[in-house]
Design a protein around this nucleic acid. Sequence first.
RNA 1: UGGGGGAUAGUUCAACGGUAGAACAGCGGACUCUGACUCCGUUAAUCUAGGUUCGAAUCCUAGUCCCCCAGCCA
Length: 567
Amino acid sequence: MAVGESKAEAAAGEAAGRDFIRDIVAADLTSGQHKTVVTRFPPEPNGYLHIGHAKSICLNFGVAEEFGGRCHLRFDDTNPTREEQEFIDAIARDVRWLGFDWGGHLYHASDYFERLYEWAEHLIRAGLAYVDDQSQEEMRVNRGTLTEPGRNSPFRDRSVDENLDLFRRMRAGEFPNGARVLRAKIDMASGNINLRDPVLYRILHAAHPRTGTEWKIYPSYDYAHGQSDAIEHITHSICTLEFEDHRPLYDWFLEHLPVPSRPRQYEFARLNLTYTVLSKRVLTKLVQDGHVAGWDDPRMPTIAGLRRRGVPPQAVRDFVKRIGVAKANSVVDAGVLDFSIREHLNKTAQRRMAVLRPLKVVIENYPEGHDEDLDAVNHPDDPSTGSRKIKFGRDLYIERDDFMENPPKKFFRLSPGAEVRLRYAYFITCKSVVKDDKGKVVELHCTYDPATRGGNAPDGRKVKATIHWVSAAHAKTAEVRLYNPLFNKPDPAGGEGFASDLNPQSLEVLKDAWLEPALVGGNSAEPVQFERLGYFVADPDSTPERPVFNRTVGLRDTFAKEVGGKA
RNA sequence: UGGGGGAUAGUUCAACGGUAGAACAGCGGACUCUGACUCCGUUAAUCUAGGUUCGAAUCCUAGUCCCCCAGCCA
């Protein structure tokens, strides 16, 4: 840090250049336009947060953190007909889980209802707002179209006194829903439809999660948002692209009201992901219509769903950092998220063995009724995690995929006559195959080489594959849930047609999986790697008798890719 | 046909008048007691046409294509 340089200025030098938002903030700090940066994340509590919100959260909280400022969590609760306490709680929980802290700066737009009301009267007195008695339909017709100007309301020129009287009676609850609205008096001929006398207040006889039945009128988003920003001294109000043409209106309110500060709005492109839909409307429908088990179904792109699937918050933050922030609409390949998840879990998850689709193996030359302990490391790249003992015996389970009776050239796992290594155990050779009356392979008979105990051959002989296994006598049974993309098209319909793009194979339940005993009873929420398979985490549905594991993400599988895919 | 935005490798993002670069994906190889990880190499882009300039992804002009807006939703 240079002499005389503030902390914020020093931070500005480092964070600048990452994206255009940070460039703006850095410039405002170095120019002295602002001494400190204040941002906000303003969710409407009408649903759960999803990965798209995570982008916004990381941007707003991230910018504040990097530049030594602060970020407020503000619930945009201006519409009691769709907002619920459950969502308020879930949102706060999810933001915290992502690793962000709003300190004491938790707010609600409803905290400002009284002040917003006073400012509405201020606009009326200034001749800048009026009560309109037109029906919703009349307003729509008179708003004009994209190419034709609108027409002034017949109530547009009411006197200040009449407007004040009517507005107060609206507040007092004298009129039914929809009877009247308060509108700004701007310009019915504006090319920007948001400026054609937008609605400031509508009558809503509805109970609000925080203010109860105190209010009969509620402010619109446009009227509430900028002023809330101003009240909180937000410096940079960051939102998504679709609000870009609301900015003139945002500015109009701030110019005509005695607000305590002057925030600026900046817009960035929202996140889109292949094979998923990030529309609150559709996500809500998925839950309501039972296409998924709930907001936290591990197939959902919600923060709660990702968490239950075992995705670590660090991976979500890394993902957001990777995809950047810009103004061009884009669709990010879902594989990028998978990469971030694997990258983090590869470093942190301990290794265990589990067999998902079991095939029985009998080691013919291993003594019956005997077993032994073998050593297995918990993490090959992190010796500090130590090792554990695993049981070996005569009867084992291996993965069905790891055996082929008539293997193609490139298959180097088990097949008749072939020798492979059982991880941490012995080399085994397949001697014979047992089939049922339908010709299905049900059991393998193998021999083991006692000299290869631990996994190395004293004669230096090599095998082409190492496969995972569990001891049949010691393994614990479990249910394992595999998740595939919720939609089967890279660009699923975001509107009414979404249901026809749902992937019928999005959930695959394996009820006959076997786990090494070390995996059971720890009731740990820590993700683990099932060797050669992927990353898994215990699901809350687990019971002591019946563990349930979710696959967070599979390991990269270049073999499957080469031969044309497996589950 | 109104208003507001946006176009750079397959994808996402850099380059802010001076050698178009990264990540993911792809392809090839090395290593390996995970067909993982890691490492090495490699394919691959400035929407089009003019203009300004010694020099243009960047500035100018004219087009093309894409997205958003006609809720008393946010």
